[in-house]
Design a protein around this nucleic acid. Structure first.
Lengths: 132, 132
DNA sequence: CTCAAAAATGAGTCCGAAATCATAGCATAA
DNA sequence: TTATGCTATGATTTCGGACTCATTTTTGAG
């Protein structure tokens, strides 16, 4: 599985938030989507730090879209939600320090790098507007 | 992470086996590749059931390629090794019984199905001969 | 025919990441 | 100033990947 529930919640949240003209709070969102409040809050915070959402504090505060949905790459959403880039294999993340180095040059990394690149390109080119 | 270590071991094993003219046992392979023996054995058994490898029991037995590497899709290797199809999300596996159905129609499944299809196509079209 | 090599099977452990729960402060618009 | 909601942090639970062990079954070799 490439994506965890965090990405799923992020996408569902963004779809709800973009359809609202008012800021939506974490608690309200959690209730509507039937998602654990605290867990969702973390994800929303990450999305805000990434500049995808804008958080408004205080009374009647909440979250609002910070960018146009045409300007948000799906990959940036995933990276914010997961806290790291989506990887095909674990080893592709640290190819310079491949654990398989011990048994000789890694036979599969050229393929994996290619595969990883294709997925990265796909997710980078895919905008939020393409999927909602 | 899309692929677990099982797929990695499967690819490394196939690369070793195809270069040998004699059957290679699970234990020998485990030693050469520095992989836990029993864990590797399970993977090899799965590959044999899938018709990718041929298993020969008894003395001087072991595993041999059952097909030409041009006829083996990488996706079939992954399915054998992982025991299931590689999925972007968990929910794409059982779209007919989506847990998010409880909160209305799933907003992200159209995208996920598209994404999943692209990955499936890529892995189906990719032959073992392309990467070794 | 017997025996040993090697595959096949199945149950069970260990560990770390994912997911969830909890909560005490901090910031701000009304 | 006060209600509202964000921030930060950490404990807890859950779950699946990674691995081990013990046993059975098969079959070629002597």
């Amino acid at each position: 599985m490439l994506l965890t529930r965090a990405s799923e919640y992020a996408l569902l949240s963004l779809d709800t938030i973009r359809q609202s003209d008012k800021p939506i709070g974490a608690e309200q969102l959690a209730n509507e989507l039937n998602i654990p409040k605290s867990f969702l809050a973390k994800i929303l915070q990450s999305l805000a730090k990434e500049g995808i959402l804008e958080s408004r504090k205080g009374a009647h505060g909440g979250f609002v879209m910070a960018k146009d949905i045409h300007e948000i790459a799906v990959r940036s959403i995933i990276m914010a939600a997961e806290g790291k880039a989506p990887a095909v294999f674990d080893c592709t993340s640290y190819m310079h320090n491949c654990p398989n180095g011990a048994i000789g040059s890694c036979a599969i990394s050229p393929f994996l790098a290619n595969f990883q690149t294709r997925i990265d390109d796909f997710l980078n080119g895919l905008m939020l507007s393409d999927i909602l």
